[in-house]
Amino acid sequence: MTVLPKDIPGDSLKVTVGTANGKPGDTVTVPVTFADVAKMKNVGTCNFYLGYDASLLEVVSVDAGPIVKNAAVNFSSSASNGTISFLFLDNTITDELITADGVFANIKFKLKSVTAKTTTPVTFKDGGAFGDGTMSKIASVTKTNGSVTIDP
């Protein structure tokens, strides 16, 4: 049996954390987006972790974005102690894959008090994996961190 590389060099799934701005007490939304989904033969499963400074940001909610089908079954998240974990699994293993680019999740943060303008990162942590529509590992994932700026 011969195994051929399935990824064209330079191609990767792009996962990007967005940015937001606000004043202390505001609730802002930071999107997590996927790009080049079709090039990577869709997404059938993924789990990953984001870190944030809990002294500056309070997670209000984490909701599935419009590219997630049947989110009540296929999407899960949790947030505590400065870490947000995400889990997606197409429970049907074929019919509810992520097949389009767009917003995977929206994180709502309540901004805490600061004395001066502060930009705090929302960054990928170690761990996690992504699988394509056949549940094979997506070897190349380009992750881009985001941030939230609090301006009193």
Rank of each mutant, 00 (worst) to 15 (best):
Leu4Gln: 11
Leu4Gly: 10
Leu4Trp: 13
Leu4Tyr: 14
Leu4Phe: 13
Pro5Gln: 05
Pro5Gly: 08
Lys6Leu: 13
Lys6Ala: 10
Lys6Gly: 06
Ile8Met: 09
Pro9Gly: 14
Pro9Ile: 07
Gly10Ser: 11
Gly10Ile: 12
Gly10Asp: 07
Asp11Asn: 14
Asp11Tyr: 12
Asp11Gln: 11
Asp11Pro: 11
Ser12Phe: 09
Lys14Cys: 15
Val15Asp: 14
Val15Leu: 07
Thr16Cys: 10
Val17His: 11
Val17Gly: 12
Val17Ile: 10
Val17Phe: 14
Gly18Ser: 10
Thr19Arg: 13
Thr19Cys: 11
Ala20Cys: 13
Asn21Arg: 12
Asn21Gln: 12
Asn21Met: 10
Gly22Tyr: 08
Lys23Thr: 12
Lys23Met: 11
Lys23His: 09
Lys23Glu: 10
Pro24Tyr: 12
Pro24Gln: 12
Pro24Glu: 13
Pro24Val: 11
Gly25Asp: 11
Gly25Cys: 14
Asp26Trp: 09
Asp26Ser: 12
Asp26Ala: 12
Thr27Leu: 10
Thr27Pro: 10
Val28Ser: 10
Val28His: 09
Val28Asp: 07
Val30Thr: 10
Val30Ile: 13
Val30Gln: 14
Val30Asp: 09
Pro31Tyr: 07
Pro31Gln: 11
Pro31Arg: 09
Val32Lys: 03
Val32His: 09
Val32Ser: 10
Thr33Phe: 09
Phe34Pro: 02
Phe34Val: 06
Phe34Arg: 00
Ala35Ser: 10
Ala35Asp: 06
Ala35Arg: 13
Asp36Val: 13
Val37Ile: 12
Val37Leu: 05
Val37Ala: 13
Ala38Lys: 11
Lys39Cys: 13
Lys39Gln: 09
Lys39Ser: 11
Lys41Ser: 09
Asn42Tyr: 13
Asn42Met: 09
Val43Asp: 04
Val43Gln: 08
Val43Leu: 07
Cys46Arg: 03
Cys46His: 08
Cys46Val: 00
Asn47Gly: 03
Asn47Ile: 02
Asn47Cys: 03
Asn47Ser: 02
Tyr49His: 03
Tyr49Phe: 05
Tyr49Gly: 00
Tyr49Ile: 01
Leu50Arg: 01
Leu50Met: 09
Leu50Asp: 07
Leu50Cys: 09
Leu50Tyr: 06
Leu50Ser: 07
Gly51His: 14
Gly51Asp: 14
Gly51Trp: 08
Tyr52Met: 08
Tyr52Val: 09
Asp53Tyr: 14
Ala54Ser: 11
Ser55Thr: 12
Ser55Asn: 12
Leu56Gly: 12
Leu57Gln: 13
Leu57Cys: 07
Leu57Trp: 12
Glu58Leu: 10
Glu58Cys: 10
Glu58Arg: 11
Ser61Glu: 11
Ser61His: 12
Val62Met: 11
Val62Asn: 08
Val62Pro: 08
Ala64Thr: 08
Ala64Tyr: 14
Gly65Cys: 08
Pro66Ile: 11
Ile67Lys: 09
Val68Asp: 10
Val68His: 10
Lys69Arg: 10
Lys69Ile: 13
Asn70Glu: 08
Asn70Trp: 04
Asn70Ala: 08
Ala71Cys: 11
Ala72Val: 14
Asn74Glu: 00
Asn74Tyr: 03
Asn74Cys: 03
Phe75Asp: 01
Ser76Cys: 07
Ser78Leu: 15
Ser78Ala: 15
Ala79Leu: 14
Ser80Tyr: 06
Ser80Thr: 12
Ser80Val: 14
Asn81Val: 15
Gly82Asp: 15
Gly82Val: 15
Thr83Asn: 15
Ile84Glu: 14
Ser85Val: 03
Ser85His: 02
Phe86Ile: 07
Phe86Gln: 01
Leu87Glu: 02
Leu87Phe: 03
Phe88Arg: 02
Phe88Trp: 02
Phe88Gly: 01
Asp90Glu: 03
Asp90Asn: 03
Asn91Leu: 04
Thr92Phe: 00
Thr92Tyr: 00
Thr92Lys: 05
Ile93Thr: 02
Ile93Ser: 02
Ile93Cys: 02
Ile93Gln: 02
Thr94Gln: 01
Thr94Pro: 04
Thr94Val: 15
Thr94Met: 01
Thr94Tyr: 15
Asp95Ile: 03
Asp95Phe: 01
Asp95Lys: 02
Asp95Arg: 01
Glu96Lys: 04
Leu97Ser: 04
Ile98Cys: 08
Thr99Pro: 05
Ala100Arg: 07
Ala100Trp: 07
Ala100Leu: 05
Asp101Glu: 06
Asp101Thr: 09
Gly102Trp: 03
Val103Gly: 05
Val103Phe: 06
Phe104Leu: 03
Asn106Phe: 07
Asn106Lys: 07
Lys110Arg: 06
Lys112Cys: 00
Ser113Ile: 07
Thr115Glu: 06
Thr115Trp: 05
Thr115His: 07
Thr115Phe: 07
Ala116Arg: 09
Thr118Trp: 05
Thr118Ser: 09
Thr118Arg: 10
Thr118Cys: 06
Thr118Glu: 03
Thr119Ala: 13
Thr120Glu: 13
Thr120Phe: 02
Pro121Ala: 06
Pro121Lys: 11
Val122Met: 07
Val122Gln: 05
Val122Gly: 05
Thr123Val: 07
Thr123Phe: 12
Phe124Ser: 04
Phe124Met: 01
Lys125Ile: 03
Asp126Val: 15
Asp126Ser: 15
Gly127Lys: 15
Gly127Glu: 02
Gly127His: 04
Gly128Thr: 02
Gly128Ala: 02
Gly128Tyr: 02
Ala129Arg: 01
Ala129Ser: 03
Phe130Leu: 05
Gly131Phe: 00
Asp132Ser: 07
Asp132Leu: 00
Gly133Asn: 04
Gly133Arg: 09
Thr134Asn: 04
Thr134Ile: 13
Thr134Lys: 11
Thr134Gln: 05
Met135Arg: 01
Met135Leu: 03
Lys137Gly: 00
Lys137Ser: 00
Lys137Asn: 02
Ala139His: 15
Ser140Gly: 12
Ser140Cys: 04
Ser140Arg: 13
Ser140Gln: 07
Val141Ala: 03
Val141Trp: 01
Val141Glu: 00
Thr142Tyr: 06
Thr142Met: 09
Thr142Glu: 04
Lys143Ser: 02
Lys143Val: 02
Lys143Ala: 00
Lys143Tyr: 01
Lys143His: 01
Thr144Glu: 06
Asn145Thr: 05
Asn145Met: 02
Asn145Ser: 07
Asn145Gln: 04
Val148Trp: 02
Val148Ile: 05
Val148Leu: 07
Val148Cys: 08
Thr149Lys: 14
Ile150Met: 13
Pro152Ala: 15
Pro152Arg: 15
Pro152Met: 15
